[in-house]
Nucleic acid binder design. Structure first.
Ligand SMILES: [Mn+2]
Ligand SMILES: [Mn+2]
Ligand SMILES: [Zn+2]
Ligand SMILES: [Zn+2]
Lengths: 139, 139
DNA sequence: ATGAGTTTGCAACTTTGTTGCAAAATAAAA
DNA sequence: TTTTATTTTGCAACAAAGTTGCAAACTCAT
């Protein structure tokens, strides 16, 4: 797994540093999405707030993670599963936010439905965010 | 139109004040959505930043306006067209954000498509945000 | 017109995010 | 392995966004 992380960083022409390894590891070890605050909490005093901001930004630019729009307008991030490239993301899946536990899921197998737009509107991207009760909280 | 505004406020058991009238008027006079910053700019020194926050919050609670999730995670608001009630919104329409002019539209006639969820997930709300080029910018 | 109740503006504060720069760490070259 | 060039980090200072308490101003019912 650690090997894997180094490979991912190198493959994206990023020098391998402590903070990048740790943060990437956090994403691999969680099923849902992470907010900046989550990472800050989990890492304690390990690295600076600013470093987290910059690392997340770098990962998004490289296509390693993607941002997720949320109803409460907080910023969440999750690993890209698809073959996302630097500058071009292809995360065309539905996201789910649980009202009870707060977890945000990437539903990688549920693809975005086609939306019929009015005359004159051209779409380049469609985001779908479903909220409700997740599998865990339903049992 | 002014009459209308007073009626809306009274119908929602809100006392009629300058700031509430002006802010509601702004929403009626715009085709798209408004952010807190837009209102602050348009109103200049007319009323305090804090008043705008509180007014927007009140309007959302009363079902007069609704929030819109955005890709850049900024908070936008627009008038409720449907019969939204205090505590329960029914704005089941698609939202469109123009990459060029930045306008956010409520596509009130385009209804939210049904999304097939995995076993165990129960949905209570679905938000769809389409981005691209709007009618105005396409011509 | 009066008074109870609501709303507003101000000030002070917290939280979130950004920027410049020197020190430290990494990767490449010798 | 040692040296050097490049990148990344932490710190400090700052800017933007949002919250809270409270006294003064306003609204509305009597
Ligand atoms: Mn995702
Ligand atoms: Mn809308
Ligand atoms: Zn849950
Ligand atoms: Zn446009």
């Amino acid at each position: 797994m650690i090997e894997n992380i180094n490979e991912i960083l190198k493959k994206n022409q990023l020098s391998v540093t402590d903070s990048r390894r740790k943060i990437l590891e956090m994403f691999q070890h969680t099923s849902g999405a992470l907010a900046h605050a989550d990472i800050e909490k989990q890492s304690g005093t390990l690295f600076d707030r600013v470093t987290i901001y910059r690392t997340l930004q770098t990962f998004v630019e490289k296509g390693i993670i993607h941002t997720i729009p949320t109803i409460d307008n907080s910023v969440k991030y999750a690993l890209c599963k698809d073959a996302c490239q630097a500058g071009h993301h292809h995360d065309n899946h539905v996201h789910f936010m649980c009202d009870e536990c707060g977890t945000t899921y990437c539903l990688n197998n549920i693809s975005i439905p086609q939306v019929q737009l009015p005359e004159g509107f051209r779409s380049t991207q469609t985001d779908v965010v479903v909220s409700g009760i997740c599998k865990n909280c339903n049992d």
